[in-house]
C-alpha cells in the first residue's frame, strides 16, 4: 500500500515528552516572532531605502528635462528677445503638430547676429548646417501614439502655450511641467465645457 508516511511514528515521542509532562507552551505571538525582529528591521530599512532612492532618482532624473544636442535657451529667445512662439513653431495654429524650426531658420538669424556668432553652441549649430543635417532634438512633451492631439484646435481656442508648456520664456533648458496623464486632459476639457470634450474618441485614436 502506498503511504506517504512510512517512517516510525514521531508523534508518540512528542506526545510522551512534551504533552504528558505538561510542558508550558508559549502562546504569545510576539514571542514567537522574536527571531524575525532582525529580518523585519532589515526589511523595513530596505523598503524605506528603496522608496527614498526612487525619490532621489526621480528628483535628479533628466527624463523630464533632457539635455538637448544644443544648449538652446528659451529664456534668451522667448524671454529676453521676446520672439513670438509662433515665429519658430510656425505650424502650431495650422496643424496638429507645432513644428520644430528647421536648421535654416536658426542659421537665418544667427548669420546676422554678430555678438553670438562665435559662441560654442552656435558653432554646433553651424556644424549641423555645414553637414546639412537636422538637429536631433529630444522631444519633451511626447504624448503616446494612441493619442490624437492637435495643436491647431487648442491654439485657435485661445489657449496660451504656457498653459500646457509652463513658463517656457524663463527656462534655459526646456522642462516638462505637465504630467500629460488622462485626467490632466479631461479635467481641462470638463472645466472649459468643450464640445464632446469627454468623448473618448476626441483624444484616442
Amino acid at each position: 500500500m502506498l503511504s506517504v508516511h512510512n517512517r516510525p511514528p514521531k508523534i508518540q515521542a512528542i506526545a510522551k515528552q512534551e504533552f504528558r509532562e505538561g510542558v508550558r507552551v508559549n502562546v504569545s505571538v510576539l514571542e514567537a516572532l522574536k527571531p524575525l525582529r532582525k529580518s523585519a528591521l532589515l526589511g523595513i530599512i530596505g523598503i524605506v531605502g528603496i522608496v527614498v532612492g526612487l525619490k532621489i532618482n526621480a528628483a535628479y532624473s533628466t527624463h523630464l528635462k533632457p539635455v538637448q544636442p544644443i544648449e538652446f535657451s528659451h529664456r534668451i529667445h522667448a524671454g529676453e528677445n521676446q520672439i513670438e512662439c509662433l515665429y519658430c513653431h510656425s505650424s502650431a495654429d495650422r496643424s496638429p503638430s507645432a513644428g520644430v524650426p528647421s536648421v535654416a531658420k536658426c542659421v537665418g538669424c544667427h548669420e546676422r547676429i554678430a555678438t553670438v556668432r562665435d559662441s560654442a553652441e552656435i558653432a554646433k549649430l553651424n556644424a549641423y548646417w555645414q553637414a546639412q543635417e537636422p538637429i536631433p532634438w529630444i522631444k519633451v512633451h511626447d504624448v503616446p501614439d494612441f493619442v490624437h492631439f492637435t495643436h491647431k484646435r487648442h491654439v485657435l481656442a485661445g489657449l496660451e502655450c504656457q498653459q500646457c508648456h509652463g513658463p517656457v520664456e524663463t527656462m534655459d533648458r526646456i522642462e516638462r511641467v505637465a504630467d500629460l496623464t488622462m485626467p490632466w486632459c479631461t479635467d481641462c476639457h470638463t472645466l472649459n465645457q468643450t464640445d464632446n470634450g469627454l468623448d473618448c474618441y476626441t483624444c484616442h485614436k
Binding site: D199, C200, H204
Partner: peptide, 18 residues
C-alpha cells in the same frame, strides 16, 4: 473597463489602448 461605449455621434467606439 469601458473600452467600448456609445458616443454622442451615435458611434459605437472601441478604445484600443484600454
Amino acid at each position: 473597463v469601458f473600452a467600448t461605449y456609445h458616443n454622442q455621434d451615435g458611434l459605437n467606439t472601441q478604445i484600443y489602448n484600454r
